[in-house]
Amino acid sequence: MQDLSDEELMARYTGGDSAAFAALFERYAPRLAALFRRALPRHVEVQDLVQQTFLQVHRARHDYQPGRPLRPWVITIALNLRRKRYRTLSKAERELVVDPSESGEAARRGLERREREQALRDALERLRPNQREVIELHWFEGLPFAEVAKITGASLSAVKVRAHRAYEALRGILDPGT
C-alpha cells in the first residue's frame, strides 16, 4: 500500500478494498488534524472532525472522479466541515482553552508551542476568511495555486491576488516593524 499514490488507493477503495481506506486514513489524518487545530480552539475534538471527514469521504466516494487529484478533494471536505463546526461555536468558545492536565516541563514546552500556535492562529484570524484559506492551502498544505483555485471555487488570478494581499497582511501582523 505504501507505494501506491493517493489516487490509486482511492480507486482501490471505491472498488471495495477497505485496507486502502485505512491506508488513506493513516496518510491524511495527521495533516487534517493540523488543518483543524490551526483554526479551531483546543477544546474542539479534532479527532472527531478527522473521523467526520473520512465518514464524508466514504459517503461521497461515488462522487470522486477517478484520476482527479485526491488531496484537494479531501481538503475541500475538511475545510467545509471546519467552517460548519466553527459556525456552531460561541464567541467565548472560540477563545483558547489551555489543557490543565499537563504539568512541569512538558506543560512549559506545550505552553510555548501553544503560544506560538496561538500567535499564528490570531494572525490568521485577523485575515479575511478568503485570504486565510488561500494561505492555509498554499503555504501550510503546500498546494499549488491551481489546486487552491479549484478548492475555493475562485479563478487562478483571484487566488494569486488574494495570496499576495494575504502574505503581505500576515507579515504585517506577525512583524509590525517591517
Binding site: 485505512a22 493513516e26 489524518a29 488534524a33 479527532q47 503555504w139 503546500g142
Partner: peptide
C-alpha cells in the same frame, strides 16, 4: 517576496502527534 517574508514568521512545522490507529 511577501511569501518569503511571511514564511520566516510562520514556519509550517511538523504536525502534532495524532493517534490514527485509535481514531480509525
Amino acid at each position: 517576496q511577501a511569501l518569503i517574508a511571511a514564511a520566516r514568521l510562520a514556519p509550517v512545522g511538523e504536525p502534532e502527534a495524532f493517534d490514527a490507529g485509535a481514531a480509525f
